[in-house]
Simulated scan of single mutants.
Amino acid sequence: MATQIFTLVGVLIGALTSYFATAVAERAKFRREMATRWDERKLDTYIEYVTCIKEIQRAAMDAGRAREKGADASGALVTMEESENRRSILFETFILLSNEKAATAAHAVNQRTWELLRVARVPSSGITELRPIPLVEALNGLHEAARADLTISSSTRIR
């Protein structure tokens, strides 16, 4: 009788150990899958946001060049405003998904972008007035913060 109880206790301990090991492994797998899913979403959002910023910058520069040549800048300004509208919407997603450092860097990019927009909207401004706005430096800070948020080290970047 005692050997049967020992056997039963051994089976029970084995079953519980197996259950807990499986539960811990499944929980870790689920967390990894969720982290990967959110990292993919974050990366897509970061790329879209930076793309909008670059489109705004390019359109503002095109408007400045057109004005310096005495040409119509309205097409470039329309493109600039459309990109700004998209950037504004994407920024909300960016803030929801990013860490504090990346969000702070994105706020700095927004400030520089708004300076660029303000100057580009002035009918008399040309490319000379647009060039000194330090948007590229703000974008570099954003790139660094985004890489850190996505745990991409500088040694893994493609050069």
Rank of each mutant, 00 (worst) to 15 (best):
residue 73 A to C: 01
residue 74 S to A: 04
residue 97 L to N: 05
residue 36 T to I: 08
residue 145 A to H: 00
residue 75 G to I: 06
residue 74 S to M: 13
residue 115 E to Y: 01
residue 59 A to V: 06
residue 149 D to V: 05
residue 86 R to Y: 06
residue 125 S to W: 02
residue 93 T to F: 08
residue 27 R to T: 09
residue 147 R to M: 03
residue 92 E to F: 07
residue 15 A to I: 09
residue 72 D to F: 12
residue 117 L to R: 10
residue 64 G to M: 07
residue 7 T to I: 11
residue 148 A to V: 04
residue 6 F to V: 05
residue 63 A to K: 10
residue 87 R to I: 00
residue 40 E to F: 12
residue 62 D to P: 10
residue 128 T to L: 13
residue 115 E to Q: 08
residue 112 R to F: 05
residue 130 L to R: 00
residue 75 G to L: 10
residue 90 L to N: 04
residue 111 Q to H: 07
residue 9 V to P: 09
residue 85 N to P: 03
residue 2 A to H: 11
residue 8 L to H: 14
residue 55 E to A: 09
residue 126 G to V: 09
residue 6 F to Q: 10
residue 45 T to P: 01
residue 156 T to M: 08
residue 70 G to P: 04
residue 17 T to D: 07
residue 20 F to R: 00
residue 100 E to D: 09
residue 61 M to G: 12
residue 85 N to F: 06
residue 79 T to G: 07
residue 154 S to Q: 11
residue 32 R to E: 15
residue 85 N to M: 13
residue 104 T to L: 13
residue 144 E to Y: 12
residue 105 A to C: 02
residue 103 A to C: 05
residue 102 A to R: 00
residue 144 E to P: 03
residue 93 T to D: 08
residue 32 R to I: 09
residue 70 G to M: 12
residue 15 A to H: 10
residue 21 A to H: 09
residue 130 L to N: 02
residue 122 V to K: 13
residue 143 H to C: 04
residue 129 E to M: 14
residue 36 T to A: 14
residue 74 S to N: 13
residue 106 A to K: 04
residue 28 A to L: 13
residue 137 E to D: 12
residue 143 H to I: 03
residue 146 A to H: 03
residue 127 I to E: 11
residue 147 R to N: 07
residue 89 I to V: 09
